[in-house]
């Protein structure tokens, strides 16, 4: 099975835990491949309704393992062959993906968190766009995601200065969704994931899909797409259950279809 990550599923939640704690979960090619594979597997698995990516040990992910990079490395091909497929697998997944950032998220580790739908950070977490500190540019979609989240001015500051951003500061910048105290970390991540796993999963997937279209299409074209999206949502069992529960004044029970 997997050697660089732990993968487990229970109660509708798939946990992808980066598992190279002695290397602060730095990326090697195999880890890119395994994350890609695990995300695709979770996307396909009908039991799974929410995905959590987190790190074993004290770091979330410290980025590319520089021990694997040398003078002969073609940095463009490294991205094309290993990181791009991983980012694309995450973007193609129509289930909610949470980055549970338990510690430092540096370089491509920061990018990995940015590619997810939600970022929950432990109060011990920090974020560093470290690329510039070794003469490189933020990659794995980093600038794309970051500029959408914080705007150009802050994206430039974060990327050019390459300074460490503590969790609280990341929250203020709008990079993450919430900061969680260390003693309730595990519990609050589980509660958040479990809440998402009980929601109308298909609708969440459609919201993700149409948000991307909303970012890329002129309004007229988007409104036509939106009508398609609502037609699809309207056909789901969960939409029927939602309306039925509303009429019957009870809590809806969604099955994710």
């Amino acid at each position: 099975m997997f050697t660089t990550i732990n993968y487990e599923c229970h109660e509708g939640i798939s946990w992808i835990k980066l598992n190279r704690p002695d290397k602060l979960n730095a990326f090697i090619a195999e880890m890119n491949r395994e994350i890609t594979h695990a995300v695709r597997q979770a996307a396909k698995d009908e039991e799974v309704r929410c995905i959590v990516i987190t790190g074993e040990g004290r770091a979330f992910c410290s980025g590319q393992d520089l021990a694997e990079v040398n003078d002969d490395t073609n940095h463009g091909d490294l991205l094309r062959n290993h990181y791009t497929p991983m980012v694309k697998a995450i973007m193609a997944c129509e289930k909610p993906i949470i980055a549970a950032v338990n510690g430092v998220a540096a370089g491509a580790g920061f990018s990995l968190a940015l590619a997810c739908d939600f970022r929950l950070a432990s109060e011990k977490a920090s974020f560093i766009n470290a690329f510039v500190n070794i003469g490189l540019i933020p990659d794995s979609g980093n600038l794309h995601f970051l500029s959408h989240l914080v705007g150009r001015a802050k994206a430039i500051e974060i990327s050019v200065l390459g300074e460490k951003i503590p969790a609280q500061k990341a929250l203020e910048l709008g990079v993450i969704n919430r900061v969680i105290p260390q003693d309730t970390w595990q519990k609050e991540v589980e509660e958040f994931a479990s809440k998402l796993a009980k929601m109308p999963t298909k609708a969440i997937g459609l919201i993700k899909r149409y948000l991307t279209l909303a970012e890329n299409l002129p309004l007229d074209a988007y409104l036509e797409k939106e009508a398609e999206g609502q037609r699809i949502a309207g056909l789901t069992k969960d939409a029927k259950e939602g309306v039925q529960a509303f009429i019957e004044k009870r809590q809806p029970e969604y099955i994710g279809q």
Binding site: R209, E228, G229, R231, I232, L235
Partner: peptide, 10 residues
Amino acid sequence: IVSGELLEEE
């Protein structure tokens, strides 16, 4: 181009 779910309908 239409959403996969609606290909047949469209």
